[in-house]
Design a protein around this nucleic acid. Structure first.
Lengths: 191, 191
DNA sequence: GATGGTGTTGACTGTTTGGTCAAGTGGCAT
DNA sequence: ATGCCACTTGACCAAACAGTCAACACCATC
């Protein structure tokens, strides 16, 4: 049962932090949702902060890794698949926003450990998008260009688009932003 | 002294919330920084939340109003002035990020009153950028286009750029994003 | 069947939190 | 000088918080 209890804690912590932020996450709620008692939790984690950091790293790293690297590992049509993913609303929860952005905003300037963790995750996000663009250049879908910069702009515009939809409550705002972003990326088409 | 005490509270609350988020803002710290006693604060505000909402509305509304509407009220060179403002690093605090985005991320899905307040501020931001673009169209700096959509993309890409710099700690990331954004906007020039 | 390690239980603690309140101060009008 | 009212003071409170701990259950292995 070891792995089971630990995993229940990781899952419940991720959900609670995603919904209420780290500072708003109540240990009592996490434990209730996980169905785990307090002392049991302190057997697996030294404190709330380490549990939250573990949850963020394990849940988000896993998610980003699969979503974007799958495209890069595919065969051709890299841009088309990437754009398709951006347009797919089922992958997004606009009410809660982006889990990475939420924690960056809340914690980066407050706590050095969170700062480092989010820096790494965000860098990995940018890197995996860059790989998609590199593949697209190799495949002749894009002309040769500064793909690192393009990935930087793409990821940040995307985070901004999710934020806009969270602020206004309008999913359409996200879609409009994504169309602008796509048309910008497409201006790098043809060699 | 009435206005003085109230203003000291508004200023200290804004700083504390900007630095630590709403949920991380300790009433005791706000009071210490303002040099105001607890009972005195409860004479001016019914509770912490209302004080924070007042601080956000008064401090941010004032700030956005002046910064962007000044450009629209100017004479010509609307785009150039707007771009100049985007490139001006002195106006930004990348460690703490954007005060609007921070609170949207933290509170929009938690509290309905914050949600409404931030929705309004964000809409005002978009509106004031749209006015700049409308002026630019009238002045022949841009061709006729959907300025509301362009303002939406511009504001959200900008928020994303500030977030990217906050995450990485690199001011250059913000500048790179802004250059991409500007080149996108410039694709609407002429015609 | 004793031993020991892994995991569980829930009562308990000390602090910090936002919020209350009765008593007091100072200036202004009458 | 008296009464009034906006404002101040700081002690006080209940609730919520993260974290501690001694006792206990289970299941190996010897």
């Amino acid at each position: 049962m070891e792995q089971n209890t630990r995993q229940k804690l990781i899952d419940a912590t991720y959900e609670e932090v995603y919904s209420h932020g780290y500072q708003g996450a109540a240990l009592a709620d996490i434990l209730a949702n996980a169905g785990v008692h307090k002392g049991s939790m302190y057997h697996f984690f030294p404190n709330k902060k380490e549990m939250a950091l573990s949850a963020i790293k394990e849940k988000i790293a896993e998610r980003f890794g699969t979503r974007y690297l799958a495209i890069a590992k595919g065969e051709g049509d890299y841009l088309a698949h990437f754009f398709e993913g951006l347009r797919d609303l089922k992958q997004r929860d606009f009410r809660r926003g982006c889990p990475v952005a939420n924690i960056v905003q809340e914690m980066s300037n407050i706590d050095e450990d969170f700062n480092m963790a989010m820096k790494e995750i965000y860098a990995k996000f940018r890197q995996s998008v860059k790989i998609i663009f590199d593949k697209a250049v190799s495949a002749g879908e894009l002309r040769s260009c500064d793909t690192a910069k393009l990935a930087l702009f793409t990821t940040s515009a995307l985070e901004g688009a999710i934020l806009a939809a969270k602020a206004s409550g309008e999913t359409q705002d996200y879609l409009d932003c994504v169309e602008c972003l796509i048309s910008y990326i497409e201006s790098y088409k043809h060699g």
